[in-house]
Amino acid sequence: MADNKDNANPTILNASDLPSRRRDSIAKKREDGGTGLFDGLVPSYNYLSDPFEYPLSSSDSDEDSAEDIDEQEIYDLISSISDPEHPLSLGSLAVVNLPDIHILPPTSPHSSISTVVVEITPTITHCSLATVIGLGVRARLEQALPPRFRVDVRIKKGTHSTDEAVNKQLGDKERVAAALENGTLMNVLRKMLSTCE
């Protein structure tokens, strides 16, 4: 089985090196530079909390600030998809990379449609599964993004021997729809997406 893989010995990125959001936000939150070691010393349900004083207190203080959908969020949605060949995520195989994700704002002020462009990098240039991976990314984003986003998934230029052909396939709405009717292919996609959180 192992012999049939296109790339049996791929390079793997360490999880600590993958881009993640928590990195920035935690650093911002803890202005004192600590790790919060002492926060747990006094339990949250200590005797000082008075249920009679502020019964409506569950609302977060930062409720008003909106957090827009950004490239990192797109990355988080698709980096946990599994590679169809290896039990590894697309993120750790560097098939999807944060710098290759772009959100384009609506083209005109009347339109509310933004576009998400994702460029994927196959592990090797002749990877036969590039189309499947592209389809998986596309299917995931269409499930997970609100309808005001249009999804555009393509192979990064110069990283695949037949990138143009594959891009044509991925861009063709009807061919994508037809592909998603295919039972075997759907099973592969379902398995890939099953590792998404």
Binding site: D32, G33, L37, F38
Partner: peptide
């Protein structure tokens, strides 16, 4: 300055 916080944390550990 709260630079002492991480130091204290480490020391306490």
């Amino acid at each position: 300055s709260t630079a002492y916080i991480p130091v204290l944390e480490a020391f306490a550990k």
